[in-house]
């Protein structure tokens, strides 16, 4: 464990190891998302109540999973960065934030599109929708805070602190919004087909979720690699690398 953490200190080592890992995750992402999309859109049976509109689930649910996971990973990498001063972790947190915000937006947007055929409206002050909207604001706050500093080190540490504060607050926000929702309006609409989902619908969903996670890891690796080159551009090994490829 310690040896691994110490190795993470070296961007050069990470650059080398991620070069080997990267293709596997990209391949897995392509394969899983491809399979899941085709299976989910073309072969999975239509929902007996919602018809074909339920197929939005194959984008909506993986995006929502990722939106929450990315914030947690941002807080964890932020903590590791604050404790052990590992630059790779900060780069990863910085690169993850826009993807997390994008996933939150996709989850919200697909939810809104799904809301039209099922609820008859684009937006409902539903507990889940509301907490996702707040999550989007939290993402935007972290991104804006990082962008506001001129010194990169301060920006990194400030964004890490905010991500940790946010991750402590996410469960509190989630539960209070659930409480608020039950206070204000009874659950007139429930998303059918989620509780008892047949295998033929569930399997492509699982594949899509795994595919989205592979995509997230692959994209983060690629983006961290280019961020390493950018931040370490005055280091000897990067110049050597650039010289070789030139």
């Amino acid at each position: 464990m310690w040896a691994f953490i110490n190795k993470l200190r070296s961007p050069k080592w990470f650059y080398a190891i991620s070069a080997r890992l990267q293709p596997w995750f990209w391949a897995a992402a392509l394969l899983l998302i491809g399979t899941g999309t085709i299976w989910g859109l073309a072969f999975a049976p239509a929902d007996y109540q919602q018809g074909n509109s339920f197929r939005i689930i194959y984008v909506h649910v993986p995006a929502a999973f990722l939106a929450q996971s990315i914030f947690v990973s941002m807080a964890i990498t932020g903590l590791v960065f604050m404790v052990w001063k590992i630059k790779i972790c900060d780069m990863a947190a910085a690169m993850m934030a826009p993807l997390g915000a994008a996933m939150t937006f996709i989850a919200l947007f697909s939810g809104a599109v799904w809301g039209v055929p099922t609820w008859g409206t684009w937006w409902m002050w539903d507990a889940r929708l509301t907490s996702m909207l707040i999550l989007l604001f939290l993402y935007l706050g972290v991104i804006a805070l990082r962008g506001a500093f001129t010194s990169r080190d301060s920006a990194s540490r400030a964004a890490s602190v905010l991500a940790m504060v946010g991750v402590i607050n996410i469960p509190i926000i989630k539960y209070s919004v659930d409480w608020w929702y039950t206070l204000h309006q009874p659950a007139t609409f429930t998303i059918t087909g989620r509780a008892a989902m047949p295998m033929e619908m569930w399997a492509p969903l699982l594949i899509m979720v795994l595919g989205f996670y592979s995509f997230f890891i692959a994209l983060t690796l690629t983006r961290v690699r280019s961020e390493i080159l950018r931040r370490e551009s005055n280091k000897h090994w990067v110049r050597e690398l650039a010289g070789e490829t030139r």
């Binding site: 707040i134 804006a144 919004v177």
Partner: peptide, 16 residues
């Protein structure tokens, strides 16, 4: 920026 950072965290207090 301050309000952007802080307002989402205020929501639980507002609700209760």
């Amino acid at each position: 920026l301050l309000s952007l950072l802080v307002l989402p965290l205020y929501i639980p207090v507002l609700i209760f």
